[in-house]
């Protein structure tokens, strides 16, 4: 409400790809996920040593926490069933959120496999093009300057060793690829 007076929105409401999920359904799904997590901790802890009542073993704490989580998830489900969560909807799947999540998953996948600077540069470029909707020349300039800054700050100043992968090896070997 406070933001309304001084901001103008680019996107309409909850974004182009966003779909409404009934709050009640979402609450149930989240509570079930918590229930499953509680069951996971309790069931696996049950395989460990419980120790004695006066001297609990490694299983005691996670088992008790797993049970407690199941009970709390059950209580949340009961609350939802009683209608405490209302009848509204929550929008999920906003375009920019989906793009950012997919880009981050790609980054995590390729980070160590390919040269990290190349991956981070590509990641930055994707987000600038698709989320910031920046012009290509700005993206290129931003990526090059950004990666130089990363190298100078993290690599040189702080001595952080980022994975190099075999991207450059493959690239330099590429012209002779397939030749005897």
């Amino acid at each position: 409400m406070l933001a309304d007076a001084n901001t103008s929105s680019h996107d309409e409401g909850s974004g182009a790809w966003a779909r409404p999920v009934p709050t009640r359904l979402g609450e149930v799904l989240v509570a079930l996920a918590l229930l499953a997590s509680g069951a996971f901790f309790a069931s696996l802890a049950a395989l460990l040593d419980f120790g004695r009542v006066g001297l609990p073993g490694p299983a005691f704490f996670p088992f008790a926490l797993g049970i407690a989580l199941c009970l709390l998830a059950g209580a949340i489900l009961y609350q939802v069933w009683r209608g405490a969560s209302g009848s509204g909807a929550i929008f999920l799947g906003h375009r920019d959120v989906v793009i950012a999540m997919l880009a981050m998953a790609g980054l995590a996948f390729a980070f160590e496999r390919i040269d990290s600077y190349v991956v981070l540069g590509a990641f930055t470029a994707v987000l600038l093009i698709l989320i910031a909707r920046a012009a290509i020349w700005r993206v290129l300039l931003g990526v090059v300057l950004g990666m130089v800054a990363v190298w100078l700050f993290f690599g040189m100043a702080l001595g952080v060793q980022l994975p190099t992968g075999d991207f450059w090896g493959l690239l330099t070997a590429w012209p002779s690829f397939g030749q005897p």
């Binding site: 933001a3 929105s9 680019h10 996107d11 920019d96 959120v97």
Partner: peptide
Amino acid sequence: ILINLEKSETIK
């Protein structure tokens, strides 16, 4: 960051 991405606003 993801929550904020949903409300891209220009601030005056």
